[in-house]
Nucleic acid binder design. Structure first.
Lengths: 142, 142
DNA sequence: TCCGATACGTTATTTAGTAACACTGGCGAC
DNA sequence: GTCGCCAGTGTTACTAAATAACGTATCGGA
């Protein structure tokens, strides 16, 4: 993931926060940078380890609070099946992302909107969907 | 969930094991009973607590091994977003289940086959999909 | 009878996540 | 200005989730 790509996303994050009257504090920004710059999904405790050489005192709540905030803005998604997090560089139009995760190289592709199945049980009202596909991406696929 | 429903599923499990040359040992059977009889998704450590008044010595690996076994047979599914498990009373034709979980009453409905999106990235080969919908079921929905 | 495989027991540790409370600094009301 | 609120962060401590590693038992076949 290129640095410019990451910084574009950071700019977008700044704008989004302004729109919503939220504050992209240094910690939140740093966590977002780390997640965006990470190669594949990143674990919360790996973020913690990455944070600590810098700030020295980060503890679990620090990183989880930042991640919660970023997820609230749709800037970061949690990969539930991995207990890990990925940065979202796409449109932040809510509605939940559909993730394609390569088991080999760890790359994550994201799709939006899309493919909500039409076979929900009678009367079921969907509020949040977790859709994660694991397999092999085009590069890792013979 | 009715007891007869549960025991049907147990019978099906026995048959399935015979077909595959696997052994539905007492522990595995008991865990399956518990999962099937539970009201909604069940946590591994709740199973452990349920197991212990009976056998007295169950520890985490015991229940996780049983769950792994049962998942391998498609008799139990993991709800990744909850770190919990649900029994599967349907056809065990693999291919991954699509879960509808009510946030209010905790009921879980399951759909099979279905709804694989057609917007996978170019060349991506899906091997396993996690699809979990959260919301309100027909009963809990005004 | 011995061997190997499978399941289970046991100890310990790692990884994930949260509760609860204290502190600080900015900002508006008065 | 200063008082009081509040969002954000620091800190301690804990609960929950999962697995590693190794020992033991049991059973069926060579």
């Amino acid at each position: 993931m290129s640095r410019s790509h990451s910084s574009e996303a950071l700019d977008a994050a700044e704008r989004l926060c302004q729109e919503r009257g939220e504050r992209l504090t240094p910690i939140r920004k740093r966590v977002l940078e780390l997640v965006l710059g990470w190669d594949g999904p990143v674990k919360a405790y790996d973020l913690l380890d990455a944070l600590n050489p810098e700030s020295g005192t980060a503890k679990p709540p620090t990183v989880y609070r930042a991640l919660d905030f970023l997820m609230g803005l749709g800037l970061v998604h949690k990969v539930e099946a991995l207990n890990a997090f990925v940065g979202c560089t796409h449109s932040h139009d809510e509605g939940g992302a559909e993730l394609y995760i390569c088991n080999n190289c760890g790359s994550v592709r994201e799709r939006h909107g899309a493919a909500v199945s039409h076979n929900a049980p009678e009367g079921f009202k969907i509020e949040r969907s977790v859709i994660e596909h694991f397999g092999h991406c085009g590069n890792c696929n013979p």
